[in-house]
Simulated assay, not measured.
Amino acid sequence: MIENKSLDSRLRNVIIYTIVILLALICLLPLWNIVAISFSSSAAVTAQRVGLFPVQFTLAAYEKIMGDAQFRRSFGISVTRVVLALVINIILIVLMAYPLAKSSREFKGRNIYMNLLVFAMLFNGGMIPTYLVVKQLNLLNSIWSLILPGAVPIFSVILVMNFFVGVPKSLEEAAMIDGATPFQILFRVYVPVSKPSLATVALFSIVGSWNDFYSGLIYITKIKNYPVMTYIQSLSVNIEELLKAGMNSSSLESVTEVSNQNLNAAKIVVVVIPLLLIYPLLQRYLITGIVMGSVKE
């Protein structure tokens, strides 16, 4: 017999759902306001008349960004950076996590390497020594200066290592009986069943590489080599400088259609779209565990 939920239980559920909805609105409403600002006129934004819906709808901010040849170039640089960083990160993470997942008896010196990794995760040389290393390697103003300094994310290595430790030994033993080599065991047994952890570190790599603008400011001195985050961070509308430069009234009127607030809001919307498209593709691997139930003991 199924008992009806008590009044206290129903009231508790109503309170919980109400709190969750309110928290969701607190997170979403500011983002929606940013979208509305990006589609509003400069005058409406300056007068603070924009709420949840655009006022005097205009695409001027997006036209300024998307019509910029340098923006398209920087966007392509960021996409290339994300792809290269993702491939390099995943390969190095897997190759480091697999031996570290073994016991000290199977991999002599395992504890030494593990201690070095933890030490490097907690303490690093800092920005200036890193810059000097990048400079000595002649990587300044190249895309590799944005990728190689973070090629081995130690936290991700530890995350995947812990997942490898949880892989049933029965899978590895069965592969060894069939004559598989260590590399075959890694790429045909461990990697396929570790999709949830690999998807997690892949998401970390994509988001980190895409959102990073500070590395571009440090290692890139030529604007043409800026990643998109660094480039749009440098975009602004300075009316005083335009007036000093002698811009005519018609050109000035077209420029003043966009304020820094419009431009900044449009920047946020444009650069967040790729992440919104990628996240749903990886989310399904973050929910379910493939290893559970793969071997019956």
Rank of each mutant, 00 (worst) to 15 (best):
V118P: 11
V191W: 09
N138D: 14
Q56D: 15
L242V: 10
N141E: 08
G150N: 01
S41F: 12
G293E: 14
G67R: 00
V228M: 00
F155D: 04
G150Y: 01
L186V: 05
I37S: 02
S145H: 06
K64I: 06
S40N: 04
M66Q: 01
D178A: 03
L137Y: 10
G51H: 04
L11Q: 08
C27G: 01
G67H: 01
F164E: 06
W144N: 12
A60W: 03
R12N: 11
K195I: 14
V189S: 05
I15K: 12
L275V: 01
L25A: 12
I93E: 01
V94G: 09
L139M: 11
T230R: 01
G293M: 14
V94P: 10
W32K: 08
S78M: 00
Y131M: 07
A61N: 03
V271T: 11
G67K: 02
P280K: 14
S205Q: 05
S104K: 08
V50W: 05
S145M: 05
L203G: 06
G67T: 00
S170C: 08
N13D: 15
Y98H: 07
S74P: 00
I16D: 05
N115S: 15
I278H: 04
L86Q: 06
K64Q: 11
G166S: 12
N141M: 06
V152G: 07
L22S: 04
P168V: 08
P182E: 00
S194R: 06
I154M: 11
I88C: 07
Q136L: 14
L22M: 05
M247P: 10
T230A: 02
I290E: 15
L86S: 13
I147Q: 01
Q283N: 14
W32P: 04
A24C: 11
F57W: 13
V258P: 04
A36C: 09
S9L: 09
A199T: 08
A24Q: 04
L137C: 09
K135M: 12
I2E: 12
A202S: 13
Y214W: 07
Q136T: 12
A199I: 11
M114T: 13
E3Q: 08
Y231S: 01
N141D: 12
S215C: 02
L59T: 08
Q70T: 04
Y214A: 05
F187M: 04
N141T: 10
V295G: 14
S170L: 14
L23G: 00
V45I: 04
L116H: 06
V207K: 00
Y98E: 07
G166F: 13
F204W: 11
W144C: 09
N115K: 11
K102C: 03
L86P: 09
S205P: 04
L252K: 07
L171Q: 07
S236R: 11
S254L: 15
V133S: 09
P227D: 03
M247A: 15
L11A: 12
I93W: 07
I26L: 03
F57V: 13
I21G: 11
I2C: 01
L84P: 05
K195T: 13
S234W: 00
N225Y: 09
A44K: 09
P153V: 00
V20F: 13
L92I: 10
D8T: 12
A265S: 08
